[in-house]
């Protein structure tokens, strides 16, 4: 897989390879496209289903196919296949324990200026309440490919949060090893670390680089599996740090940062925690992803300032 690919094409190419060998692999698109999907449709018309902009029907049909022994991938814009389908996912997939992979494209503010209906900024909060689900947020192509392989190798109820833009590669061949743990330390620090995933992981790495120039060593942990979080693994990864910053492109209510705090509380572990994320309102601003994030205090320099202040206060 070319590192120049974007996540969705990398993922679909991987599934195409599997589908060419296995006629039980099915791809259902609710009118969502991709370059790689065009190739899949051409090669495997009998393993492709077009369901149109009917997200509920998409999930219900997927359930019928999965209950018939198919390995089903549903593909749609992240904001709609999640919020619109919370009930079909809960009822048809969760309660029936069906192994369906739900691919959501364009998480966070990935649709830039399209407005709050397209923003997928509360999905971790409500999707992680679905029993039995695994939520995975790849930050690069390598992790997308490894996650695709996992979904085929070990089918389960999963929600894969795919980023829309091309993002830099961060793993350098290490992701397969990290995958079972659900998280991976990408930069080591002294007292403070940032826990992030997906698009915001790259921002966390930038912040760490910026603070390094000030002589502050900040750890960065990719929490690519926000659900479920293995408590013992999280404690091990966080053990070098007294201060934990969670950074997400999500409204703070019940999001990834909340999930981290829940695990710390349940494990009886005391850390100083700063949760950074989006405000609890619908974001109508124009100006693109970077601009909107900066309006929400999540520009790189702004995050660096907040982390610096947090580290200083908590270390004083």
């Amino acid at each position: 897989m070319s590192v120049h690919a974007i996540q969705r094409d990398a993922f679909i190419n991987e599934i195409t390879e599997a589908a060419l060998q296995d006629r039980d692999v099915y791809f259902i698109s609710a009118d969502m496209g991709a370059v790689a999907l065009d190739a899949y449709r051409e090669k495997l018309p009998d393993q492709f289903v077009f369901s149109g902009i009917s997200e509920q029907n998409t999930i219900d049909v997927a359930a019928g196919l999965a209950a018939s022994g198919k390995r089903v991938y549903t593909y749609a814009m992240a904001s709609f296949i999640t919020a619109r389908c919370y009930e079909p996912l809960r009822y048809m997939v969760g309660m029936m324990s069906l192994p369906i992979t739900v691919l959501g494209v364009g998480v966070g503010l990935g649709y830039e200026d399209a407005g709050p209906a397209h923003n997928t900024t509360e999905d971790i909060a409500f999707m992680r309440t679905l029993h039995g689900i695994e939520i995975l947020s790849p930050a690069d192509v390598e992790s997308s490919v490894e996650i695709a392989r996992l979904t085929y190798r070990d089918p389960g109820f999963r929600y894969i949060r795919l980023e829309r833009p091309k993002l830099p590669e961060v793993y350098g061949g290490r992701f397969a090893e990290a995958l079972p743990r659900g998280m991976c330390t990408l930069a080591e620090g002294d007292e403070t670390c940032i826990v992030a995933s997906g698009f915001m992981l790259h921002r966390a790495l930038e912040v760490a680089r910026e603070l390094k120039r000030d002589g502050l060593r900040i750890g960065v942990i990719d929490l690519f599996r926000s659900t479920p979080i293995d408590g013992s693994v999280l404690l091990a990864e966080l053990s070098p740090y007294r201060n934990v910053v969670t950074l997400e492109e999500q409204a703070l209510a019940a999001g990834m940062g909340s999930a981290v705090v829940e695990v710390l509380a349940d494990e009886g572990e005391h850390k100083n925690v700063l949760r950074l994320g989006l405000p609890g309102r619908y974001l109508f601003e124009n100006g693109g992803r970077d601009y909107i994030l900066s309006q929400c205090g999540l520009g790189v320099a702004q995050i660096a300032d907040r982390v610096r202040a947090f580290a200083a206060t908590e270390s004083a």
């Binding site: 289903v49 509920q56 029907n57 999930i59 219900d60 049909v61 997927a62 359930a63 019928g64 196919l65 999965a66 209950a67 018939s68 022994g69 198919k70 009930e87 079909p88 009822y91 048809m92 309660m95 029936m96």
Partner: peptide, 19 residues
């Protein structure tokens, strides 16, 4: 099928039929 929520069983049955 699981029962209790309305409006979704036809889609499930369509999935069975399609498979």
């Amino acid at each position: 099928s699981v029962g209790g929520s309305l409006g979704q069983g036809l889609g499930l049955a369509a999935g069975f039929a399609l498979a």
